[in-house]
């Protein structure tokens, strides 16, 4: 099996071969192949800039892999600010002995995901470290996007805003957990990992009032709603039955005692829109396969400022708290 060696990160001939035969081949664009010390970019608009590091175990999971995640994650962070993703950097830290074919698969997956938003990787770096120094492969991506809509902010939720979830929740967290623990529970479970820009672009083009928008990654839906409620000093009232959770995710939560609202998502976003825009926003979202289950899950009020309240279908209510500590399975 061909593997990545320390020499591939040494800056010499092997590094050159790796860059040309793998990265340039798949990420091919004019800025990148100039191979200068830094990419030179010409942008005359207001930009958004973000970075994220990706580590996931296992690196290949149902519905994606670390490469897809590394592109979708950064592109989505830009999209959530109303920015069109333009340029990304990508830096790899690879454990010595990592399979070359796995690396190729990851890079191909990154290229495929980039095509969905049209963003380009314009600079990069590769380090190879001795065995045991990292867990297989870490990827960092940073991204620059052109701001297409301003004032999308956690501070911007208004009373009576509708809260929309773009799809059913909890898939990524549940999928990775099942894979990591070798829990073979459901064959149909897949991560929701996806580039969200096309849907966001459509919402911006239709001039939907996007008061707040965030992808529900780590901490899940609970974290997004709580951060919004606190930052905007409002109450978010959620109808529990309106929050869509697939049977597979629900089943895993039942068996192990987890809450789907605490699970991470990688292709699910939450929006706060003005009430008059609700129907149009839903119609636009539902045009996209990865948002076909979009639904209104709640609304903004002043009932309990800085709190998220969950209403049951039978007349009781409770607070939805931020997830705390690591997710641990229940005992019995």
């Amino acid at each position: 099996m061909k593997t990545v060696q320390l020499s591939h990160g040494g800056g010499g001939e092997e590094t050159n071969t790796l860059i040309h035969d793998l990265f340039y081949k798949h990420f091919n664009n004019e800025i990148l192949i100039k191979a200068e010390d830094a990419a030179v970019l010409q942008i005359n608009k207001k930009i958004a800039f973000t970075t994220d590091s990706f580590t996931v175990s296992p690196i290949f999971f149902e519905g994606g892999d670390i490469g897809k995640l590394a592109i979708a994650g950064t592109v989505n962070d830009l999209a959530m600010m109303g920015a069109k993703p333009l340029y990304l950097s990508s830096a790899f830290i690879i454990e010595e002995g990592f399979s070359f074919s796995d690396l190729t698969q990851i890079v191909e997956s990154m290229a495929k995901e980039l095509a969905k938003s049209g963003a380009q990787i314009v600079c990069g770096d590769t380090k190879v470290v001795p065995r045991g120094s990292v867990d297989k492969i870490f990827i960092n991506t940073a991204g620059i996007g052109e701001l297409m809509k301003e004032n999308i902010s956690v501070l911007n939720l208004q009373e009576n805003d509708l809260i929309i979830a773009s799809r059913d929740i909890g898939r990524h967290g549940a999928t990775v957990l099942m894979a990591r623990e070798n829990l073979d529970v459901s064959a149909d479970l897949q991560s929701d990992c996806e580039t969200l820009w096309p849907a966001v672009e459509a919402l911006i083009e239709a001039n939907i009032s996007l008061n707040a928008m965030r992808d529900a990654t780590r901490g899940g839906l609970s974290a997004v709603l709580n951060e919004w409620a606190q930052s905007s000093e409002v109450c978010i009232e959620v109808e529990e039955t309106a929050v869509k959770i697939s049977d597979e995710v629900r089943g895993i939560c039942e068996i192990f005692g987890f809450e789907a609202m605490d699970f991470a998502n990688e292709g699910t976003f939450i929006l706060a829109v003005s009430p008059e825009d609700g129907d149009t926003a839903l119609a636009i979202l539902q045009e996209f396969a990865f948002c076909e289950n979009a639904s209104v899950i709640g609304r903004v009020s002043q009932k309990y400022p800085e709190k998220v309240v969950l209403h049951s279908a039978y007349g009781s209510s409770r607070f939805l708290d931020l997830p705390k500590g690591e997710l641990l399975p229940r005992i019995c």
């Binding site: 005692g257 709190k307 409770r318 607070f319 708290d321 705390k324 500590g325 641990l328 229940r330 005992i331």
Partner: peptide, 26 residues
């Protein structure tokens, strides 16, 4: 005493009474 900084065990476990009150009753 909160789930992140529990002084007592009832706040630690997701089945503890304090944890359940903190989590659901706010």
């Amino acid at each position: 005493c909160t789930p992140n900084t529990p002084l007592g065990s009832c706040m630690v476990s997701s089945e503890g009474a304090c944890n359940a009150y903190y989590r659901y009753a706010g």
